[in-house]
């Protein structure tokens, strides 16, 4: 199962890239744990998680080609 992961704003300072593909992750908690292992500074960063453009509040099951986005605090306007 392929999951697309998008990172934005200050989070890309940590990862160096804005897009990551992950295989064999069943839910958003697994995605987040995997990212925190690869990029420890993410664990202390503020962000919310969106699945297919909707912000989630708890662990969410993923399906083939789900898009998971990590969104740091918004600062538009």
């Amino acid at each position: 199962m392929n999951i697309n992961i998008l990172l934005f704003g200050q989070l890309t300072d940590i990862t160096g890239i804005g897009t990551i593909t992950m295989e064999d992750v069943a839910d958003t908690d697994s995605v987040v744990q995997n990212l925190h292992r690869r990029f420890p500074a993410l664990a202390t960063s503020k962000y919310v998680v969106a699945v297919n453009k909707n912000i989630i509040t708890g662990n969410t099951l993923l399906t083939q080609n789900s898009t998971v986005a990590l969104l740091p605090p918004f600062s538009g306007g």
Partner: peptide
Amino acid sequence: KSELPVWGKELFENEEYQWKEN
């Protein structure tokens, strides 16, 4: 300001920057 996923990077004269907070 509170709901749109938009991010502002504040740029300084000397190429330094910081991420804006609303």
